[in-house]
Design a protein around this nucleic acid. Structure first.
Lengths: 240, 240
DNA sequence: GCCTGAAGGACGGACCGTCACACCATTTGC
DNA sequence: GCAAATGGTGTGACGGTCCGTCCTTCAGGC
């Protein structure tokens, strides 16, 4: 009847993964903090406002906020000028889960697709002047070669900025998710300044290609950029 | 405080969409039928077996099967050699929802990213002989230029086959989802044989590039292929 | 110094999706 | 005719989520 291991069947009948609203909220906010999208000290919208935006009940939101507060990512302040704030001293990143490590190649492939699509569309659609903020980020990156945590956060801003250029909400969301997973994967890997410098040079070339509407060059540049990361992972992790 | 319309904030605090197991199951099976992955007359695994694969309770699975049976997509047969079968005469596709039409550009962008990533990885990784089945599909497509429904199903097989070449489960799943959304979008659009012939010629060029491990040419070919569809949609639908 | 307003914190009841389990009804093969 | 495999049905429990209500804390205005 059915050949065992047929990738189509396996995809079709793969387990239905129903994440609860609570889990998804913890993931979303946790990732945003981890990526620096919500920087230390940032104030979240008030609970009654945030639960409306997220489309969930306040009690559900509070479960998520409580969990993130207990893990040290958030800090709640009561009173009139209170609110929920991102902790000034975020807890150390926990090591990548075995589940994530097992599918690291899949994660990289996924990211390649998103980044490639983003870069091609950005090259087609970017208008003069839109690239200035990104060039600024690249300049900033040059000064962060010695501090990987800071470098990585600016790096995320760069890639998300590219995704914004496409004007596609879904690609921006996908890029955020992909960067979150990559951050988990690479957080425990040494990144010497020379490697970061070389990566940032690729950022520059990429930006130049996007500005020139040269989709082929942009695609080439991002592919090289990502393959660098992939080779490092391939050397450290079991074959995927 | 917060600038209204900031794409990052909107992504971060976008509504948390928790699909129920029931809904996701209906979507998955419904899409598979619509795409021809489960062809008319095909027998689904027994309920007790399928619910285990899907990781849901049998009662939940039955809700989904009942819904699909009532809409005419499935037919249940009792008794020892019974089972749940895909209807021989599938009901007509319902017109694309307003919600889908509203974000058609987003869907196209999304698909571009997936297809681009798939094609690049396939070009890097494909081994001699793996392309034979796909070439066969392309030959088959040449004979279906007059029957769009049949053409489209073979077309889906072609694109999913490419995704399989990457060996990435996630990309295969994403491709399946993307093809499902595209099918909804284009089902109500006229596709003259000349257009289909030209599209299939692009398939051939794409396959040649993949076989030659020429990533740049492959990317170029798929981009042209998809832009064709996009221009047709852009002409018929309100600007996205 | 008190009051108001805005924020987080806590509780209880209700609803609904999901699960696990047992059992019924139907058909086919031996 | 019996056994086995299948879809069909019902019941009770659990858990996540929602909604409403009220409490607690604290800054700022009068």
């Amino acid at each position: 009847m059915t050949v065992a291991g047929d990738p189509r069947e396996e995809t079709l009948f793969a387990p239905v993964r129903s994440q609860t609203a609570f889990e998804e909220t913890v993931d979303r906010l946790g990732t945003a903090i981890k990526l620096g999208l919500l920087p230390p000290g940032a104030k979240l919208p008030a609970e009654r406002e945030l639960c409306a935006k997220l489309g969930i009940a306040r009690s559900t939101l509070r479960q998520a906020l409580t969990a993130l507060a207990q893990s040290g990512h958030l800090r709640a302040v009561r009173g009139r000028s209170g609110g929920t704030f991102v902790a000034e001293r975020p807890p150390p990143a926990d090591p990548p889960s075995a589940e994530l490590l097992a599918r690291w190649r899949d994660v990289c492939d996924w990211r390649l697709a998103i980044e490639l699509g983003v870069v091609v569309l950005a090259a087609e659609r970017s208008e003069p002047g839109q690239l200035a903020p990104l060039e600024q980020v690249v300049d900033e990156l040059d000064g962060l070669l010695e501090d990987f945590a800071a470098y990585r956060q600016a790096d995320v801003r760069f890639h998300l900025g590219l995704a914004e250029l496409t004007g596609s909400p879904r690609l921006l969301a996908a890029m955020t998710e992909a960067q979150g997973e990559m951050t988990d994967l690479i957080s425990y890997i040494a990144h010497p300044p020379e490697v970061l410098a070389s990566a940032n040079a690729q950022h520059r070339r990429l930006l130049a290609a996007v500005g020139a509407h040269d989709t082929a060059a942009a695609a080439q540049a991002i592919a090289e950029h990502l393959h660098g990361t992939e080779h490092v992972l391939a050397g450290l992790l079991p074959a995927g």
